Amino acid sequence: MLPSTSTHRASPGHLHKQKWRGRVGLALVASLSVLAGMTDAIGFMASGDFVSFMSGNTTRLAVAISDGDMGLTLRLVILVATFVIGNALGVVVARLGGRRTLPLLLCIATLLCMAAALPIDAQLRALLAAIIAMGMLNAAVEEVNGLPVGLTYVTGALSRFGRGLGRWMLGERRGGWRVQLVPWSGMFIGAILGAVLEHHLGLRAMFVSGLLAAVVGLLSLTIPRRWQLGYMPR
């Protein structure tokens, strides 16, 4: 069961609701991580650039600078800056949408479908639209029952899992560290699906990412608003 900061003397009913809030939150995290992994794999295979994995693009940027490749350097600077802008826009859209998941995911779905619909010779514009969408995605869920989660990057999740494993090996029985595998597993499965789709559809596979974002957004209507407020950034 996920840990809480307010379970002291909590009633059984409260603990039951909190347990379900955690399960629903993790299901949402898993779904959105699949979306992120799928989109990243499609973008990477179609263009050679990462759509959500900015650690990879940052390393590539450093290599491009050391090689004196100004064209690639400029391209990667634009990609990283676009991701930052996407994160900022995600918070803005989330706030304007009353911190509800649906408006945010519909915006993301629109951007992904735009990326898929652009002509082949407009690949950079398609890539930028997808990167903005992935940046915005991080505003959909920031934490679940007090546990930080990442949707478009998994290094932090694996690091938190590994540290939790180390504490468990030392005899500490803190909860919550195992759930860090949820976003990693979701992104891994999504990347496999994205790679298969890109093989058959190319960059048009982004339409599937857009459809998934819209479907998850509609399903989020079944999540109590109070729970959504707890998932999204303040």
Rank of each mutant, 00 (worst) to 15 (best):
W184D: 03
S220T: 01
I65P: 02
E143D: 08
Q123T: 11
A191G: 14
M169R: 14
L15N: 12
V51D: 10
F50S: 11
I65G: 01
R23V: 10
F161M: 13
R174S: 14
P183G: 09
V154T: 14
S11F: 03
L26R: 00
C113Y: 00
A140S: 15
L111Y: 03
L111Q: 04
G22F: 06
C107K: 00
R167H: 12
S220Q: 02
M38Y: 05
Q228C: 04
V24C: 09
L201H: 12
G186F: 07
I132K: 07
H199C: 00
L197M: 13
R125P: 01
V93M: 08
I132L: 15
I189W: 00
S185W: 02
M45R: 12
G13W: 03
T155H: 05
L212M: 13
R234N: 14
R225L: 14
V92G: 00
A46Q: 08
V29A: 08
V91G: 15
N145Q: 15
H200N: 13
S31W: 00
V91F: 04
T110S: 13
F188G: 03
A36N: 08
H16W: 11
V24A: 13
G171V: 07
A191D: 08
V77I: 15
D67W: 04
L118I: 05
L76T: 01
Y153C: 01
Q123E: 13
A94H: 02
A94K: 03
L102S: 09
F207C: 08
M232S: 07
S52G: 15
S55L: 04
T59R: 07
S33G: 04
I120S: 13
I192E: 05
A10F: 07
T7F: 11
L32Q: 09
L201I: 00
G162T: 15
A205N: 09
M1H: 09
P3D: 10
A115F: 01
E142R: 14
L219S: 03
M70A: 14
L165S: 14
P119D: 12
V144S: 10
L106V: 12
L106T: 06
G175I: 02
A122Q: 14
M187V: 01
L15P: 04
C113R: 03
A133G: 04
T152Y: 06
W168V: 01
T39G: 06
R21K: 09
S33K: 00
T5S: 13
M70C: 00
A157H: 10
A133C: 05
R125E: 12
G194R: 07
N87F: 00
S220F: 01
R21Q: 15
G13L: 12
A191P: 02
A109V: 03
V77S: 11
R21F: 07
G13M: 10
R9W: 07
T7W: 07
L151M: 08
S185D: 01
V34R: 02
I108V: 11
C107N: 10
V92I: 15
V91A: 15
I42H: 04
V179S: 15
I78C: 14
G135P: 06
A41W: 04
K17I: 05
I223Q: 09
I120W: 03
G194K: 07
L2R: 02
L89C: 11
F188Y: 10
R167A: 14
D69Y: 03
L76E: 06
G25F: 02
R234T: 12
G97D: 09
M134S: 08
L112G: 00
G97P: 03
G171W: 10
A122L: 14
L112C: 05
L218Q: 06
S209N: 05
V77T: 12
L137F: 02
A130M: 03
